[in-house]
Nucleic acid binder design. Structure first.
Length: 325
DNA sequence: CATCAGGGCCCTG
DNA sequence: CAGGGCCCTGAT
C-alpha cells in the first residue's frame, strides 16, 4: 500500500462573471438526483469543483453573489503555481460554456410557458440550465459506473476508482478528488480493475481511456461537429450505447429529441406524464416528443430536476420507493 | 440456500 | 433484430 500524496492548491485568483439572465445558480450546479461523488461539493450559493485544464490541476470555487434576474458569480481559481493571464482567459471561456453562463434558453421558455406540465415548473426552476460541467471523459466514466447497477454500487465503484487512481487535492479548506488522466487508466491491467468490483466494465474503462489518451476523441473538437458526427464519434467508444449517448450530448449542450427511456426513468415519467404506475416506454417517448419536439431531452431533464428538488424539500412517497440506495 | 434484476452494452446467430 | 451473457449486490 503506497500512501498517495495530496496536492495542495495555494495560489488563487478571483474574478466576476455576469451570466446571461435569467440564471439560477443552485438549480444549475446542483442535481439532487445525481449520486454523491467527491469530485464536487455543493452548498446553497456555493460550489467547488476539481478540474484539469490544459494539463493543469485546478480547484474552482463559485459563489452566487447575484439573483436569478441579475446574476453575478464570483469565481476563484486555485492552483499550485501562478497562472498566466492568457490561461485564465481561456479557462473562463471554457467555464462559461460548461456552466451555461451565456446559454440562451429564451426560445424554450417562450415556447412552453403555457404547457400544463412546465408552467408550474418554470416558477421553481426559472433560470436553470442543464448540468454539464464535467469533462466528457469524466462523464463517460460516470456513465459506465451507472450501467446495470443500483446507486449504491455505482457509488462504491466510483469511490474505489477515485481512491486508487484519482488525485487527492486540497483547496479552500476542501479535500476532494480529481479524476485520473486517461493514460493512467489505459495502462492498468484488467484484473487490477476487477478487484475494484467494477466487473465486466473493466474492459470499457481501459479501452475508452486508451482512445482518449491517443487523442481519438477530443471534447473540444466535438463541440464544433454536427449532431450526426458527434453521435458517430461517441458510439465508437467501447461501452457507450444509446442510453449513455443522450446524457453525453448534454455535456456538449446539444438539444435533441429524446430517444431512450431507461427503466427507472420509465417509472418516473409514467407518474409525471400520465399519473400512472407504469406506462410503456414507447408511449412515453411519443408523448415527450409530441409535447417538446427537439427540446424533449431538456424538458425531461427540467421535469426530473424539479421533481427531485421538491422531493429534497419534502419527501414524495412514490419517488422515495423508486430510488433504491 | 437459490434466484433475480438493477440508472446497458456487446456480440452472436 | 432478438436474446444471451456479463460483474457484483442486496432484495426476496
Amino acid at each position: 500500500m503506497t500512501k498517495r500524496k495530496v496536492i495542495v492548491l495555494k495560489k488563487q485568483c478571483s474574478t466576476e462573471i455576469v451570466p446571461k439572465a435569467p440564471y439560477n445558480f443552485d438549480k444549475t450546479v446542483y442535481d439532487p438526483s445525481h449520486f454523491p461523488t467527491p469530485i464536487e461539493i455543493w452548498k446553497p450559493g456555493k460550489f467547488w469543483k476539481t478540474m484539469r485544464f490544459k494539463d493543469r490541476i485546478l480547484g474552482i470555487k463559485f459563489m452566487d453573489v447575484g439573483t436569478i434576474s441579475k446574476p453575478k458569480i464570483k469565481l476563484t481559481v486555485f492552483s499550485a503555481s501562478e497562472l498566466k493571464k492568457e490561461f485564465i482567459r481561456d479557462l473562463i471561456k471554457d467555464i462559461n460554456f460548461r456552466y451555461g453562463f451565456n446559454e440562451d434558453l429564451s426560445d424554450f421558455h417562450r415556447q412552453y410557458k403555457s404547457d400544463s406540465l412546465l408552467r408550474p415548473v418554470f416558477k421553481r426552476m426559472r433560470g436553470a440550465h442543464s448540468r454539464s460541467f464535467e469533462s466528457l471523459y469524466e462523464i463517460i466514466m460516470i456513465s459506465i459506473v451507472l450501467q446495470n447497477a443500483i446507486v449504491r454500487r455505482t457509488v462504491q465503484m466510483m469511490n474505489n476508482l477515485l481512491n486508487k487512481y484519482g488525485q487527492k487535492i486540497k483547496f479552500n479548506g476542501k479535500e476532494m478528488y480529481l479524476v485520473w488522466k486517461p493514460n493512467k487508466l489505459a495502462k492498468v491491467d484488467e484484473k487490477e480493475l476487477r478487484n475494484l468490483k467494477v466487473g465486466y466494465r473493466a474492459k470499457m474503462f481501459t479501452k475508452i481511456s486508451e482512445q482518449f489518451a491517443k487523442g481519438d476523441v477530443n471534447e473540444y473538437r466535438l463541440r464544433e461537429m454536427s449532431l450526426e458526427q458527434v453521435e458517430r464519434e461517441l458510439l465508437k467508444l467501447y461501452g457507450v450505447g444509446p442510453a449513455s449517448l443522450d446524457s453525453l450530448l448534454g455535456i456538449l449542450r446539444i438539444h435533441q429529441p429524446i430517444r431512450t427511456i431507461s427503466p427507472w426513468e420509465q417509472k418516473i415519467y409514467s407518474r409525471l406524464l400520465f399519473n400512472k404506475v407504469i406506462v410503456s416506454p414507447d408511449k412515453i417517448l411519443r408523448e415527450l416528443k409530441r409535447r417538446y419536439g427537439k427540446w424533449s431531452v431538456f424538458a425531461g431533464y427540467i421535469l426530473f430536476e424539479d421533481l427531485f428538488w421538491r422531493h429534497d424539500k419534502k419527501s414524495i412517497p412514490w419517488l422515495e420507493k423508486e430510488i433504491r440506495l
